[in-house]
Design a protein around this nucleic acid. Sequence first.
DNA 1: TTAAATTGACCACAACTGTTGTCAGGTTAA
DNA 2: TTAACCTGACAACAGTTGTGGTCAATTTAA
Lengths: 197, 197
Amino acid sequence: MAGRSWAGTTLDDRKAARRGQLVDAGLDLLGTQGSAGVSVRAVCRHAKLTERYFYESFADREELVVAVYEHIGEQARQALVDAVSDTAEPAERAKAAVRAFVELMLDDPRKGRVLLLAPITDPALTTRGIALLPSFAELVSGQLSHGDAAERQMTSIGLVGALSNVFIAYLDGSLKVSRERLIDHCVRLVLGADRQP
Amino acid sequence: MAGRSWAGTTLDDRKAARRGQLVDAGLDLLGTQGSAGVSVRAVCRHAKLTERYFYESFADREELVVAVYEHIGEQARQALVDAVSDTAEPAERAKAAVRAFVELMLDDPRKGRVLLLAPITDPALTTRGIALLPSFAELVSGQLSHGDAAERQMTSIGLVGALSNVFIAYLDGSLKVSRERLIDHCVRLVLGADRQP
DNA sequence: TTAAATTGACCACAACTGTTGTCAGGTTAA
DNA sequence: TTAACCTGACAACAGTTGTGGTCAATTTAA
């Protein structure tokens, strides 16, 4: 029986808590050491749990990685939606969205690295094409007005690449500019992505 | 004595040939299976040589990876320089450069993946900040006229990111456009990177 | 022919991986 | 207190890794 209380909490609660610890540990490792640092054993050591509990919540190493990525992805999506829902004017919306994204990543760079780097470095994510960023780009830039479908697709892909690279450079310290200038530049990228040649 | 002839060739020659085989094998693995596929043993199996000869030419797994990256980087640089040296008119130069780059990568996608993906996926490259692409961007876009140093740096980083992402999408098949449209779009990206907001 | 140099096939080591299993103890409801 | 359950620490498996070494066979210059 799952509802039976044990040590003050129910079994399901404790199981969920352990799952949370594992995801947190996964975020920590994926966000600092990258894909190679995320082994079942390392995650367990980090979460101070034994392998037993890993396989209680995840079938695979892969499943954990996906869970971490989607966990962060959901946070980012939510942050974007919140930021956008406040304002109606397009330029302001873009600015608010970019600002929300930057703040999410600067307040916790691990999240930025998971979101931007993990999908290209970890096979578990690469294979499945679980790339949330393109959908973010659509969300941010609304609908691009110029060009046909292929044109818009290229523009959107390029925009995501440009933003990612700028963020990454900022995160690893090779781009030294103020937070405000970074945001400004990214806003201009977003707004300028849809111009006639 | 190194000049002594053996089996028709000198020792140094054979050593260099083996080194070449190892680098080729490294390119093959890094360009298809990614960073994780490049282990000393896998490279040796692929090159049909034994570990002994690996350590004859490289101290580390790391050294091999760097050698592969720089090998391809040099090829790309050369292709760019050749393409640019033909024409003087800026727009034509950009077009020629982009075309040369695209052709290099399409004729051998492994090279594209090594050049674009390896520096962010392999720790041996990530750590050392061996990213040739920024210097390529400068070479391609000449000198950006607008903005101060930080502005130009952000623009350049963004441009590289945009191009990389478009290339990558093209390489893995998620972007289905003709070669000509791809080149056109990239040329517009390069030319448009340096416009006033 | 003899002695030296080169080669390739292995083997050894310790460390790590994913995954499953066992087993002694603690905690709780009955 | 007893019996059911939960927990944590391990062990075992077969595999891979980086890095080094050994040893017999081959190839050549002398």
